[in-house]
């Protein structure tokens, strides 16, 4: 399967990259690790004129502790490098818990943090070959007018299928976006639009440069539970990230719960902090949160696994993760131990 003909541009600086993006608008596409973009190009999901390979931009690499005690992780940091970075592993365990569940080792050697945060949304009616989609007559997202997941609707339900995003949402991470007017900072939670087509708030002339982790959430316990059929290679069918700051008396000082792979965006379960702060473990409280989680997640028939089962797993994963955070259940091993 050949790739569509296009120019490949390899800028050395963010400024150059942004200039190329500005000049070509929607006809340019950013390439980092390639594990998501290249198969999608082969499937003709996009046909950009210009492929902008940002791997040559040094300033997008590296993990640095900044003067304000935040940690800046360059967007080009590979997933393997993220796992190998001791300071992240120890301070933000939810990140390594999520990252080690992404695809498999070969894909993680190529895939980048930025790429994982900008993944294309996925749907069984969309992530198919050109031939397959044409035989169907396309879908709402591409080449067609009908959403096969929710026919009659005018919304695309393709699913957010990244694992990093829910984990980073629980850490109140921010992102650094480079554009023609320099950098802007944005809460990661504002980056996602919950729209299968127009999935992220990234301008056509912008690129995701880094993730910034606040000191506030450092040291919080955290875990990510992922539903998938195989324990490697697979994209998530549901994901639950939970972090909690628990004091010695077992009182929750702060907590977040986020879901992935069940909605067009990764989402925080809004009630988590309000309901959990100042509380000790109780099964009733956990069940209340579980209920909030399944109210937040809205799995549809976008993948091989049924919505009923995925919803059920949101329930189990959320409960188990909260129990783990409070020490009521053995910790899921995540490579830190």
């Amino acid at each position: 399967m050949s790739l569509p003909a296009m120019r490949v541009v390899r800028p050395r600086t963010v400024e150059d990259a942004v200039r190329v993006l500005a000049a070509h608008g929607p006809e340019a596409m950013i390439l980092a690790g390639g594990t998501d973009v290249v198969p999608n190009l082969q499937m003709r999901l996009f046909a950009p004129r210009v492929l902008l390979d940002i791997k040559g931009i040094g300033s997008l690499r590296g993990v640095v502790r900044q003067p304000d005690e935040t940690i800046r992780v360059g967007a080009l940091t590979t997933l393997t490098q993220l796992l190998a970075t001791e300071s992240l592993r120890l301070r933000y365990p939810v990140i390594s818990s999520a990252v080690r569940s992404i695809a498999g080792p070969l894909q993680r050697n190529m895939g980048t943090l930025g790429g994982n945060l900008c993944l294309e949304t996925r749907c069984r009616w969309y992530n198919q070959s050109d031939f397959w989609r044409k035989s169907l007559g396309g879908c709402l997202k591409k080449e067609g007018t009908i959403c096969h997941v929710a026919p009659g609707g005018d919304r695309c339900w393709a699913v957010w299928s990244g694992d990093c995003a829910p984990a980073l949402l629980t850490l109140d991470a921010e992102i650094e976006i480079a554009g023609p007017n320099g950098n802007r900072r944005l809460a990661l939670s504002s980056f996602y639009r919950n729209d299968g087509i127009n999935r992220i708030a990234l301008g056509g002339d912008e690129l995701l440069a880094a993730v910034v982790l606040p000191p506030r959430t450092a040291g919080w316990r955290g875990v990510y539970h992922k539903l998938r059929i195989r324990n490697s290679i697979d994209y998530p069918l549901a994901g639950v990230a939970v972090v909690m700051n628990v004091d010695e008396q077992g009182v929750c000082r702060d907590a977040r719960v986020a879901l992935g792979a069940v909605n067009p965006a990764p989402v925080l379960v809004k009630q988590a902090a309000d309901w959990l702060i100042g509380k000790k473990y109780s099964p009733e409280l956990v069940e209340r949160l579980v209920h909030a989680a399944i109210q937040t997640g809205k799995p549809l028939t976008t993948s091989a696994s049924s919505p009923v089962y995925r919803r059920e797993m949101l329930r189990v994963f959320t409960r188990r993760a909260l129990e783990e955070m409070w020490g009521m259940r053995p910790r899921t091993p995540n490579g830190n131990d």
Partner: peptide, 16 residues
């Protein structure tokens, strides 16, 4: 229509 004509979606077992 075959919904999973790929090694990503037709899931033969990995080592794990």
């Amino acid at each position: 229509r075959l919904m999973n004509p790929s090694l990503l979606e037709y899931r033969i077992p990995t080592t794990l």
